[in-house]
């Protein structure tokens, strides 16, 4: 039982990390209907800017601020030079543009900041918390807990922002109906620039967490692929969905990794390792079949 709990909690906490990446997708998809394939690359860019600035001698806090500035500028530039030119084009064109953007970042960022993998030290140790270990005998990493706290804070802030501010309302309005938003004088371009800025910020948070955990390296761009099943399960348009989806994926893949192989082995024989790698995608496929809009995705409101 203790072991089960440990696996479950470890899974949930790693799910938070997925959720952080998924959040960036949701924000952009919600506001502009664009599936931003470059979100993973943005995570990489953010983490790389932080270590890059630190290597040039900036302290951590300054490096984070600089990275934030870089990400915001990047977001605004993307809107201005890529998306604005593609208004009124079919979604697939926009999607292709974001793929191009991803490759652009993946090429440019290492040229500026160097491509060798580096460690990012946030000053939070990735060690079990002794108090919990002593009391319940469960290993919970301090780093994971901090990451969960940061994610919770981020989501709460975003939710409040969307719900109660003028810009937040405008963002939701644009997400609902571009034309109508335009007709009442909401400047779509500003709104999109803001969304990309926010997505850049979310990428920065994700980049800090992932970079500190796995090192800042090219593989960070693949976090985007892990966010896909999260999005399918949580729903492409829901911020809470991204969180719940992340938790579900994290927990289920860890549990599957531990408990599925013996079952599979007894059924089919052979060796079943690395279930963790593909289990989330199977789960996502299943969701696509039974609930394509995801757990929290917005249903199309149809009046009969």
């Amino acid at each position: 039982m203790q072991f089960f709990l440990e696996v479950l909690i470890g899974g949930l906490l790693s799910g938070v990390m997925y959720a952080l990446v998924a959040l960036g997708f949701v924000l952009i998809y919600k506001a502009s209907g664009v599936f931003n394939f470059a979100q993973g690359a943005m995570v990489y860019l953010a983490a790389l800017s932080v270590v890059g600035c630190m290597e040039k001698g900036a302290p951590l806090w300054l490096a984070i601020i600089l990275a934030f500035v870089i990400m915001t500028l990047f977001g605004i530039a993307t809107e201005k030079f890529v998306l604005r030119k593609l208004v009124n084009q079919p979604p697939i064109a926009l999607f292709m543009a974001t793929i191009g953007l991803a490759f652009f970042i993946e090429g440019l960022a290492p040229m500026v900041f160097g491509s060798d993998p580096r460690a990012l030290d946030l000053g939070i140790v990735d060690e079990p918390i002794p108090a919990i270990l002593d009391a319940w005998g469960i290993v919970i990493s301090k780093f994971d807990l901090v990451a969960a706290g940061v994610a919770a804070l981020l989501v709460t802030t975003l939710a409040l922002f969307f719900q109660y501010t003028r810009i937040g309302r405008a963002l939701r309005a644009v997400a609902d109906d571009h034309q109508a938003a335009l007709s009442i004088g909401i400047p779509l371009q500003h709104i999109w620039a803001i969304v990309w800025g926010i997505a850049g910020f979310v990428a920065l948070v994700a980049g800090l967490m992932w970079g500190a955990r796995n090192g800042v390296q090219f593989a960070l761009t693949f976090t985007a692929l892990k966010a896909l099943p999260v999005l399918i399960i949580g729903g492409f348009t829901s911020v809470p969905g991204a969180i719940v989806g992340g938790l579900l994926i994290g927990a289920s893949e860890k549990l599957a990794e531990i408990y599925l192989p013996p079952v599979m082995q007894s059924l089919f024989g052979g060796n079943f390792g690395g279930i963790e790698g593909w289990f989330p995608y199977v789960l996502a496929l299943f969701f696509l079949l039974v609930r394509p809009e995801g757990l929290f995705g917005e249903k199309h409101i149809d009046r009969v």
Binding site: R166, R169, A170, R172, A173, A175, D176, D177, Q179, A180, A181, S183, I184, G185, I186, E298, I301
Partner: peptide, 25 residues
């Protein structure tokens, strides 16, 4: 300002939020 045909409300916003967005400018 134009009020478009076909009642383009922001479907997922409440009526009050719809009105509030109108004051954006």
């Amino acid at each position: 300002i134009q009020v478009m045909e076909g009642r383009h409300c922001f479907a997922h916003l409440t009526l009050e939020e719809n009105l509030l967005t109108g004051a954006y400018t």
